[in-house]
Design a protein around this nucleic acid. Structure first.
Lengths: 121, 121
DNA sequence: CTGCATCCTACATGATACTG
DNA sequence: CAGTATCATGTAGGATGCAG
């Protein structure tokens, strides 16, 4: 049994599932696994996320201590987002999800192009 | 690039993320990795899911070809749910999520008990 | 560039009752 | 036992505009 911020979980899979039970957070982490990025870069890299949602999700990830936010006092402003150590540990999970997605596409869909994300893990 | 049921995905992580972008499906698969189960067993094992939601999620998993549904013509009725081969391949992903959840609890929460799910992988 | 403030809607989930 | 049928609701996410 686990307790995080007063909330109880009976199984550790529940923890991971709840944190990433949304449309975008996993994708943000996936992109940050390539290295630190600015707000603008993320908003360009992550297909079709709106600015508002990106801001919300980055804040959630920061609150959950998965990413670090660094503000540079410049004009124009510059903010760098990067993964914390525990955030980086999501690499294994994301890799497994990535591999399974490919398997699933082979079996139940089609691969229409050789373009595969813009990852270089 | 991938296409599944007419829908396009730019990255295989997106596929996995979209399928499991809900509160329950991953947990159902996680339980079925222990072996086939009846409807009733699932509804008892999976903490606090309602019957309606369980039915909806089982149907979705079946449509996506992750589980198989077998009906036995008996009275009272008997229905067995089990993972398909592609469903079973989620083992790696679930294991990774399980491990990460434990790491996260160690770092950002607390482990209040030695009870860890009822898994025996 | 990096956000925040509003308004709005769809959908996932829950509560409850009922059935072959 | 294994579901269906209704009704209700919270909230994630989108659209748009503004700001330091």
């Amino acid at each position: 049994m686990y307790k995080i911020n007063g909330k109880e979980f009976k199984c550790s899979v529940e923890i991971t599932n709840e944190i990433f039970n949304d449309k975008w957070k996993l994708g943000i982490v996936w992109h940050l696994l390539n290295g630190s990025k600015r707000y603008k870069e993320l908003s360009e890299d992550i297909y079709q996320i709106t600015q508002k949602t990106l801001t919300v999700k980055l804040k959630e990830l920061e609150e959950k201590k998965l990413i670090k936010r660094e503000v540079f006092a410049e004009v124009p402003p510059k903010v760098i987002y990067s993964l914390t150590p525990i955030g980086k540990k999501l690499q294994d999970t994301l890799n497994a999800m990535n591999n399974w997605g490919i398997e699933y596409a082979k079996e139940c869909g089609e691969i229409t192009d050789n373009y595969v994300c813009e990852k270089k893990h």
